[in-house]
Design a binder for these strands. Structure first.
Lengths: 151, 151
DNA sequence: TTGAATTATCTTAATATTAAGATTATTGCT
DNA sequence: AGCAATAATCTTAATATTAAGATAATTCAA
């Protein structure tokens, strides 16, 4: 009979596996559209949440600052995103999705959503609700405790 | 009121978030030991499952063949792993953990397990059991459906 | 208001990862 | 046996990511 530690590790393993395989569906779909997953993630963030300071993008997608610069550069080259200086704080740049970026996502998003729905179709609607509640709780607590030097 | 697609996407988001933050704990711990997460993942696989053909490592950790070669090279340089040719099939190489690799994991694993336990401590034991059951089901079905060209 | 500490972005070099295809070995068909 | 198809690993080049630290702007305390 497994103790608390074994159970926690087991949870980590099945969490990772589930995430990997659902993500595999999503990434395969994204690459079909000529973006890599990071670029898509940033674009979607800007689409749904509006213009963001680069740093906040990094916080939300867990990326180092050097990589943010690189990814935003790529998206600017593809004309899906533009940098806009912040008038209040001249250290800050906002990344903002362009018309072209919006059009791209409007085109790609419905199919992408369907791909994700297929990927998680192994759970019933009720099971999804349960999983969402548990994962939300887990994610919030893991994020909180990460900041503490406790580990 | 959210429909099935929205709910699925929401599940994907909270799954990704939870996985990212729990993983953040684990990775921070791993880097303290001078390995990167991929190297640690391979080493742990070999530790728990015994010698593996390189390709099977790639299947289990979702890695391309070029990267397997690279990672096993690194682990061989660190003398934590050795390649062993397969006598039955000369195309195949097994990767096998060394004594040194075993000693390394024996030293690192208990603390690592504790870090993971802390990371998921936001759920009660009962919630962990529920989450494990749901995630196991989700992972298996997502893996299965990935092979189909359905997406 | 100066200067120390902090913050945001960027730069560079090192490292990690993928993609494409080469090489070598095996399998199965004829 | 001989050949085509498949499979496992490796190689190379391109791409992505991190780590470390540089630069520039801001904040805040003295």
């Amino acid at each position: 009979m497994p103790n608390e530690r074994d159970e926690s590790l087991h949870l980590f393993v099945v969490l990772s596996r589930a995430c990997e395989w659902v993500t595999a569906h999503a990434h395969r779909d994204i690459r079909r559209h000529g973006l890599n997953p990071t670029e898509y993630g940033v674009l979607e963030l800007l689409y749904h949440k509006g213009p963001q300071p680069l740093q906040q993008i990094g916080e939300k997608i867990l990326m180092t600052s050097g990589n943010i610069t690189y990814v935003i550069d790529k998206l600017e080259q593809k004309q899906l995103v533009v940098r806009k200086p912040c008038p209040e704080d001249r250290r800050v740049s906002f990344a903002e999705i362009t018309e072209r970026g919006v059009a791209f996502l409007n085109d790609a998003f419905p199919a992408h959503q369907q791909v994700v729905a297929n990927a998680v179709a192994g759970l019933t609607s009720e099971e999804k609700r349960q999983a969402i509640a548990l994962l939300k709780k887990l994610g919030i607590s893991a994020k909180e405790s990460f900041k503490l030097p406790a580990d």
